[in-house]
Design a protein around this nucleic acid. Structure first.
Lengths: 258, 258
DNA sequence: TTGGAAAGTGTAAACAAAACACTAAGCTTT
DNA sequence: AAAGCTTAGTGTTTTGTTTACACTTTCCAA
């Protein structure tokens, strides 16, 4: 799953001109069996003369794109830089392009200090991606990176709170309509973990028996002859998601409910 | 519902610099009780010396945006120019930004003839909008505008086929999950018209009795003491959609089916 | 007055959703 | 070795939803 670091043609090695009107922001979701987390990056700014800290806050992981680069590839590249992983689940969900995106002083200062014009309009294409909370590098462009539970995030730089909220809405909608939860779990997982995932992301409690009844109708969820190990209680059976079966049996849903 | 044409502050009167990296394309859907239609614009190009027609095809309705303009406002503006209507239902659905968007010769020629650099990368934000097939001006920027049934559209300029397909997918998904069909019908409509709408957009036949049973569970669909007039058969009862009731009773759907 | 055309209506069977509580299995502690 | 902790795993009943299916009513036009 890792990039072939000697392959010059990999999408992660783009060079060329940077497009300075459009960028990509990734809302990287991770699940640690307890919380839904988002990968955030520390943004600390120091006075350029005195070295005194001016402010410290958090941002999503965003990036410029190259002129010859597809949007999806730019998002994939960011994910690769952060995680070293390829084939991460990724979904474009919205474009943020208000002329008033950058209004706060801290944001303007930061852009200036990084050689960008804080008055020029930049559109950003929002992607969200899903991974098991794991395998993540702790540095990105010299800045600290960390998982933060979504429920604890109250403030972010730029318009990143808006982006996060929209991403979360898109994720919930997707989770309700497609079996995407598996992207947030390890390959082998228990039904309780899956249930917890739904409960945490959707923010509702679910009945264990009804949940399992529903699950048992999904023939692409395969029970293994294997159990959890090293837990201090009855170990649960492990399951895998069979994408192949899912794609085959996927019938177009037709339920104009609500 | 019409713009106040003397009000200088209306969003439809934007002036200022044009942003030349990002544009907006609108897929304008209309329903005429038989087909799902899209509003298309003729694109005819003539040899600049001889006046001979070089090619003739169709495009979606797209437009530049102004530097100080919100994306949604730009889309609203296009709709207003075309229809004279405000408060049209509108949904951003995807950004198209491939570096390879413009590859065909016709497209390059057209851009050049219109004073634009065919090699410069332009991102376009896709919106779809819904209206009853009605009340539409027949000219836009001196070009002919017409409704074309979606099923008959096989070729469009630029990457507009991609945009159309993506819009159609987004519309179907939305129609299944939210009562949005009313936007494609006149304020008063019959149940048969509503059923036909679902059948046409989703491309499936529906059982009349089951459809009506389902409908009768939706308390925001209000039957009127009024009937169709001037039809050569038993006239149907008219209904209205009550958005207020819908918004009140909207409970977050929770059905991670498929 | 008749014929055409779409409107409008009910029932039974299969399936899905919701509500609800106890036993089983492995690990830890004493 | 036994007791206790913790989570896994399991079934039934009631209620609501989906599906399949055919005939009568009402208006207009000829």
């Amino acid at each position: 799953m890792h990039a072939e670091t000697n392959n010059e043609t990999t999408v992660h090695k783009r060079i060329g001109t940077i497009n300075n009107s459009v960028s990509v922001d990734c809302v990287i979701f991770g699940f640690d069996f307890t919380n839904l987390n988002v990968l955030l990056v520390d943004r600390v700014m120091y006075d350029e003369h005195t070295g005194v800290e001016l402010f410290s806050d958090l941002t999503l992981t965003g990036n410029h794109i190259f002129e010859e680069e597809e949007l999806d590839d730019a998002a994939t590249r960011i994910l690769y830089e952060l995680t070293g992983l390829e084939n991460i689940y990724l979904e474009q969900f919205y474009v943020f392009g208000s002329p008033k995106r950058i209004t706060r002083q801290n944001d303007k200062k930061w852009l200036e200090a990084n050689g960008r014009d804080p008055e020029s309009r930049i559109f950003t294409v929002g992607y969200y991606s899903l991974l098991a909370t794991d395998n993540v590098t702790l540095q990105w462009k010299g800045r600290n990176v960390r998982w933060v539970p979504v429920s604890e995030i109250t403030d972010l730089a730029f318009d990143h709170m808006d982006i996060l909220h929209k991403a979360l809405g898109a994720l919930r909608k997707k989770l309700i309509n497609e079996p995407i939860g598996f992207e947030l779990l390890p390959a082998k997982f228990t039904l309780s973990q899956l249930q917890r995932l739904y409960e945490v992301v959707l923010g509702v409690p679910l009945d264990k028996r009804n949940f399992r009844k529903k699950i048992s109708r999904m023939n692409y969820l395969i029970p293994l002859d294997e159990k959890q190990k090293g837990v201090a209680h009855k170990p649960a059976r492990l399951y895998v998601f069979d994408r192949h079966i899912y794609e085959k049996n996927r019938k177009e849903l037709l339920d104009f409910a609500i």
